[in-house]
Design a protein around this nucleic acid. Structure first.
Lengths: 246, 246
DNA sequence: CCGAGCTTGTGCACGCGTTCTCAAAGTGTG
DNA sequence: CACACTTTGAGAACGCGTGCACAAGCTCGG
């Protein structure tokens, strides 16, 4: 039986915990979660714009590129500070710098992938981690037949060495691509080894202690959600959901 | 230039469009988007419970298994109808049936994957589409060197035949795993061929016309969000986000 | 048949996020 | 310098989703 209590534990939910704390030196106000989730969109849009030698960009144009509306862009950016100039727009270069600083993309994040199956292998080879800073440095698997196997320029390490390797590479971000059954145990071991951010691809509910963040990407769930709306579509109603950003 | 206007277009947003419509025969009330996103969690939890020959389950237990809280479970399930018995709980078998009907999992959905790179290949081989009903029937790529190549028991089809093949297989759900640059064009072609649900893995903003739904899964963005909170963690604050369900 | 003990279903209050709207603040021209 | 035009930044209203709290309803034992 897993210890599930910590996940969204009843009376002391995340929403309650972070009330007025969370005003760090770098950010004037607390940045809403929804805004954080959109910053990468702005970042990407600005990167593309920057390559075209455009010096300044309006909230309207940026909104168009990021696929949101202009009011949202302005409010989001205002959380970072007043980086725009009225009547002109935002300085692309400067805004890019501020956002990447805010997102921690000026740093380099070493990443470990645990579970080198179909998905893990694909992630290991995936060049498109967009704005780099995320360097996959460690591949871990439980299957002895895989250990030592070369993928790209990395070789797969046994899960027995998880703790050591994660510590040696100073890894803070782990990617979980194991089967559902192993997810919770691997998550626990990652956390024990000092990992404080986990991206979980395993189709399983999985809990982490306070102070560790975890985001879940579940293909089956995404398909099932699509299926729900797909089903209604034929039978009369219009489909509500367009795109998800959160 | 892509036609971006349709995405979350200003004054006529999705939120405004689906006001009081959306009460289909199968569902007594309009089911909130957030609830729809959690139904697959309940579905999975119930499947595991059902295998253990448990006849009935309380909202509390189901909440624990799904990683949410009990009040939410009850409210969510009440949108489907009053399928529980006070003092007893929910009949596992029956609830399972109702949820899978609601999610359209009683049907079979043929799926096409476009873009057979690292990720596309992994998805093609991925057995874990959980509760099946989602059968990958078509693999499409633009690279002539890949066309005809066998993956599992499917062979890759040229993108020139996209329209024909999608129609022949009666495909309603498409998975987009192309590079960013090709995403919008491929999405347009899928829609033109009759696809009305798209799961988009390409790291690009991409719009679809009204009546088509699209969900986006973006690895780079997920990592950047983790990075944001990871960054703060060291410098004093506690980390707000635990797990995402939406 | 009654009362104790559970468990569901829902009304209600609250908080977050979105959008509208408009004053404030910049640019450029004559 | 004044005026027209552009664009940001934020105050306010609204709607959705969450969680609490409790009445309604079921089971079981005596």
């Amino acid at each position: 039986m897993h210890k599930l209590g910590t996940l969204q534990a009843g009376p002391c939910s995340a929403a309650e915990r972070r009330k007025d704390i969370w005003v760090t030196a770098s950010s004037r106000r607390r940045i809403p979660e929804a805004t954080v989730a959109r910053l990468p969109l702005y970042y990407r849009a600005l990167m593309e714009t920057g390559e075209r030698q455009v010096a300044t960009i309006s909230s309207e144009r940026l909104a168009e590129l990021a696929g949101v509306n202009a009011a949202k862009v302005r409010k989001d950016l205002s959380y970072l500070g007043s980086y725009g100039t009225r009547g002109v727009g935002y300085d692309v270069e400067y805004l890019l710098h501020e956002i990447s600083r805010e997102l921690g993309l000026t740093r380099d994040w070493p990443v470990a992938i645990v579970g080198i199956g179909n998905l893990g292998r694909a992630l290991a080879n995936y060049r498109g981690f967009g704005a780099r800073g995320f360097r996959v440095e460690v591949l871990i698997d439980a299957d002895p037949a895989l250990v030592g196997h070369q993928i790209g320029d990395l070789s797969v390490v046994s899960i027995d060495d998880l703790d050591r390797v994660v510590r040696e590479h100073n890894i803070a971000i782990g990617i979980l691509a194991t089967p559902a059954g192993a997810a919770q145990e691997v998550a626990d071991r990652l956390v024990a080894a000092g990992v404080t951010s986990i991206l979980n691809f395993a189709p399983a509910v999985c809990s982490v202690p306070e102070g560790v963040s975890m985001r879940k990407v579940d293909l089956a769930i995404e398909l099932q959600i699509l299926s729900f709306y797909q089903l209604r579509r034929g039978t009369g109603g219009t489909a509500p959901p367009r795109e998800r950003t959160g």
